[in-house]
Simulated assay, not measured.
Amino acid sequence: MDRVDRTEIRPCRAADVPLLGRHLAAPGAPTRHAERFARQEAGAGTYLLAWRDGVPVGHGQIRWDGCAAPEVRAEVGECPEFNGLDVRAGLRGQGIGTALIHAAEELTRERGGTVLGLGVGRDNPRAAALYGRLGYVPVVAYTDHWSRTDAEGRTHAYADACVFLVRTLETRNG
């Protein structure tokens, strides 16, 4: 568990999922949090949450099997991927995203991993700058294809131009 100021970072629990929908709404994707928690329960990921004063304020998911994009897999294989990083509006720039990334890095190290990757949209220079400051370097451009199912059950497909970045994780001594 990592703390930034009064922020607690920990994996999602079953009892958290209903709270996430109320505090970290996902417009057009009412099942996103449940899907990420189910991936965690299946052992394919870890859904990290940031909390302040008992309220969820940010999240991100480690996909232990890596990015699904063929361009990325061809370049980095099954490098664990940290994706879906988001911090509640009004709280960005306060170190919450950085704390989530550091927690993902620590969990990756604990599992014997030596690298962690993440994707960033080409239209998101603020996130790209953060990742660069944290030591992530661009490896490959790719198109992120994803979909969401809305409250009416309709599936919407999206494609975003992205860059996949990787950071080699230093080992912890002692």
Rank of each mutant, 00 (worst) to 15 (best):
G66D: 05
G66T: 08
C67E: 14
A68Y: 06
A69L: 05
A69H: 03
P70M: 03
P70Y: 04
P70I: 10
P70V: 10
P70C: 02
P70W: 07
E71Y: 04
E71R: 06
V72D: 06
V72I: 12
V72R: 01
R73L: 10
A74R: 11
E75A: 14
E75L: 10
E75M: 10
V76R: 06
G77R: 04
G77Q: 09
G77L: 02
G77A: 09
G77M: 01
E78A: 15
E78N: 13
C79S: 05
C79I: 09
E81F: 06
F82Q: 02
F82K: 02
N83G: 14
N83Q: 10
N83R: 12
N83L: 10
N83D: 14
G84M: 09
G84H: 09
L85D: 07
L85Y: 05
L85S: 12
D86N: 13
D86M: 14
V87D: 14
V87M: 13
V87Q: 10
R88E: 15
R88S: 15
R88M: 14
R88Y: 04
R88L: 15
R88D: 11
A89R: 07
A89I: 06
G90M: 12
G90R: 07
G90L: 13
G90D: 09
R92L: 01
R92A: 11
G93T: 02
G93M: 01
Q94P: 00
G95R: 07
G95C: 08
I96V: 13
G97E: 12
T98F: 03
T98G: 15
A99Y: 04
A99K: 11
A99P: 09
A99F: 12
A99Q: 12
A99R: 06
L100V: 14
L100N: 03
L100Y: 01
L100S: 05
I101N: 02
I101K: 02
A103Y: 11
A103L: 03
A104Q: 04
A104H: 02
A104T: 07
A104V: 04
E105Q: 14
E105G: 08
E105F: 10
E106S: 11
E106Q: 13
E106D: 14
L107Q: 15
L107R: 14
L107Y: 04
L107K: 10
L107M: 14
T108D: 06
T108V: 15
R109Y: 07
R109F: 10
R109S: 07
R109I: 08
E110M: 15
E110A: 15
E110Q: 15
E110R: 15
E110I: 12
R111H: 09
R111G: 02
R111Y: 03
R111C: 01
R111T: 05
G112D: 13
G113W: 05
G113A: 12
T114K: 12
T114P: 00
V115C: 14
V115H: 14
V115N: 02
G117M: 05
G117N: 01
L118S: 08
L118Y: 00
G119A: 03
G119V: 00
G119Q: 01
G119N: 01
G119S: 00
V120Q: 00
V120T: 11
G121K: 03
G121N: 06
G121C: 02
R122F: 00
D123N: 11
D123T: 13
N124C: 03
N124A: 02
N124D: 09
P125W: 09
P125A: 11
P125V: 06
P125N: 03
R126Q: 15
R126P: 04
R126F: 00
A127M: 11
A127H: 03
A127D: 08
A127C: 07
A127I: 06
A127F: 02
